[in-house]
């Protein structure tokens, strides 16, 4: 587990620069929103995603989140088909804040281009790369 600026980044995951994490599970990829980004967004009150069965493209919109009248996008970290959307989030979007890497997962993707796209993500074991990226994000956020 890497801890940066007080926020956890489990080392078994991969991290997309638009703040989604990826966990590989038997050929599929479970994805969610990282702890730092969830904290900066604030307590989430709404989430909307593309439905299961839809194809998604890396870097494109997976859905939207809302906290206290701020709306932001969730970007897909991988290209593929949405196999499942977390059913617990529609009634309780703040699961993403409470358990960003556990119960607050967002979607399960059947990836099409995993090997190539995984190279674009930051491995959780690469602490230096994670720190450099997060430092940049913190500066942009002004927090």
């Amino acid at each position: 587990m890497v801890k940066i600026e007080g926020h956890e980044f489990p080392d078994g995951l991969y991290y997309h620069r638009d703040h989604m994490w990826v966990k590989l599970e038997d050929g599929k990829a479970r994805v969610g929103y990282n702890a730092w980004a969830a904290d900066v967004a604030g307590k989430l009150v709404s989430i909307k995603t593309r439905p299961a069965g839809r194809t998604v493209k890396a870097g494109k919109t997976l859905g939207s989140i809302e906290s206290g009248k701020w709306v932001g996008s969730l970007k897909t970290p991988l290209t593929g088909t949405l196999a499942e959307i977390n059913p617990g989030l529609s009634d309780n979007p703040s699961l993403i804040n409470d358990s960003p890497y556990g119960d607050g997962w967002v979607a399960l993707i059947e990836p099409e281009n995993l090997d190539a796209e995984l190279k674009e993500l930051i491995p959780g074991t690469d602490k230096d790369a994670l720190e450099a990226w997060l430092k940049e994000e913190i500066e942009k956020a002004g927090v």
């Binding site: 900066v40 604030g42 906290s67 206290g68 701020w70 956020a141 002004g142 927090v143």
Partner: peptide, 10 residues
């Protein structure tokens, strides 16, 4: 002039 972090932005 304007931070991107939601709390600070508002």
């Amino acid at each position: 002039a304007l931070p991107r972090g939601v709390d600070r932005l508002f």
